[in-house]
């Protein structure tokens, strides 16, 4: 099966970067421009994994995780947080919020794809 990825980031640059990596890996890629958009797209797309930025307008990444975890659509989907910091504080916070894992920007293609495979068990 083709892995469906939903990426949520307000930066078009990052969205495009992710697109190129995801499509290269043969994943089915959808993106959203902010938290609210992301949650809506989530309901439509039913992705196998969500990658979300933290700092976003309208609804931040924690809001997205919260919405998905407390929602009624596949609320245990793996969610990876995109962050520019690698500090423990942030990881702790992400974990508490319900994130499955995290990716530190700038990310490299290979590790990103392997993390996705690892947490989804697909591919």
């Amino acid at each position: 099966m083709t892995l469906k990825v939903l990426a949520i980031d307000d930066s078009k640059t990052i969205r495009e970067l992710l697109r190129s990596v995801m499509e290269e890996a043969g994943f089915d890629y959808t993106s959203a421009v902010d938290g609210v958009d992301g949650v809506e797209r989530y309901a439509e797309v039913r992705p196998d994994i969500v990658i979300t930025d933290i700092n976003m307008p309208n609804m931040d990444g924690y809001g997205v995780i919260d919405a998905i975890r407390k929602g009624d659509i596949d609320n245990q989907v793996p969610i990876l947080v995109l962050t520019t910091e690698s500090g423990d504080k942030l990881k702790q916070r992400a974990r508490q919020a319900g994130a499955t894992g995290w990716i530190v920007k700038p990310f490299d293609d290979v590790s990103l794809v392997s993390v996705i495979r690892r947490v989804t068990g697909i591919g």
Partner: peptide, 22 residues
């Protein structure tokens, strides 16, 4: 899926609320 946290708003409600706020 539906068992826990029945009191939590459904996701689409949340999204709708957020969109309305927007």
């Amino acid at each position: 899926p539906s068992a826990p946290k029945a009191e939590a708003p459904t996701m689409s409600d949340r999204a709708a609320a957020a969109v309305a706020a927007l």
